[in-house]
């Protein structure tokens, strides 16, 4: 018995000693692990933010956040990261400026843009949760390095690149999103914002301007928006010069063709 007890006592002591050495191992690794985890979650936050931006913001701010003239400002420019806060006299951090704007929107716009920055935060009746606002801000802030250095990261701000054998309609759908048409026209079939909703355009296009076929009318509306100004917009009569008149220069022929083909499917 005597001997046995001693062995057992020694056994416990050895076990507990090794167990505490385990814990020391954890302690040794903690100083390296904590920052690594922090970077991990910061990275995940940018990933989540990218998805949220893609789903909610590209329509107005553009796929790479460069803004769309007349619709919404660039949030991926050197000025945005350097002088913007001074310009508006905001004393907080850039992150809180972004989170505040996205959360509560800009109820009173600067007047330069056709659209309004909506209230996105759930607190203000929008769709995004606080963690999503945080993530989308992480994504925007992640442009800083390249914006300030003046280079564009993405070789080209290609929208989701299409299969090389993509049909014109697929191209058109992608261009519609990427070029921010939805920023003014809304999603087809939904409510237009400042431009007429394009749901059903294929049906009415052929009879809008005498002498122009549906295809020709749509093509003209995109390339020369002022040639015929639609009378009814969601907020009253349509203003001329609101829809950018530059698409004829900026869109590749295949993209323009794609857009027309796509709009022709909206019956």
């Amino acid at each position: 018995m005597n001997n046995m007890m001693n062995k057992i006592t020694v056994g416990i002591v050895v076990l507990l000693l090794t167990a505490s050495i385990f814990v020391l191992f954890v302690a040794r690794d903690e100083p390296a692990r904590l920052p690594a985890e922090e970077a991990n979650f910061a990275g995940r936050s940018v990933e989540n933010g990218a998805l949220i931006f893609e789903a909610n913001c590209v329509g107005c701010h553009g796929v790479q956040g460069k803004g769309i003239p007349g619709v919404a400002p660039s949030i991926n420019s050197p000025e945005f990261f350097t002088t913007r806060l001074q310009e508006v006299g905001y004393v907080g951090s850039l992150r809180s400026f972004i989170e505040g704007t996205v959360n509560a929107g800009r109820p009173v716009g600067s007047g330069e843009y056709s659209a309004k920055m909506a209230t996105w935060g759930q607190e203000y009746g929008g769709p995004l949760r606080p963690d999503q606002i945080h993530d989308v801000a992480s994504f925007i802030l992640n442009w800083e390095a390249t914006a300030v250095a003046g280079e564009s990261t993405a070789a080209q701000p290609t929208p989701t690149p299409l299969a090389s054998d993509a049909s014109p309609i697929e191209i058109g759908t992608a261009v519609y999103t990427a070029q921010g048409c939805a920023g003014c026209h809304g999603e087809p079939g939904g409510a237009g914002l400042v431009g007429p909703n394009l749901g059903g355009i294929a049906t009415r296009a052929g009879s809008t301007v005498p002498g122009l076929s549906a295809e020709e009318y749509i093509q003209q509306s995109i390339v020369q928006p002022n040639a015929y100004v639609v009378p009814e917009c969601p907020n009253g009569p349509c203003a001329p010069n609101l829809m950018p008149a530059t698409y004829g220069q900026t869109l590749a022929p295949a993209e323009l063709d794609g857009l027309v083909q796509y709009l022709l499917t909206l019956e």
Binding site: G43, V46, N142, W143, A145, A154, A155, A163
Partner: peptide
């Protein structure tokens, strides 16, 4: 198809089709 694009500094976009 797997399409990989540079999207931001340290961020790649991967589209799986």
């Amino acid at each position: 198809k797997m399409i990989i694009e540079n999207w931001q500094e340290g961020l790649k976009k991967v589209t799986m089709r």
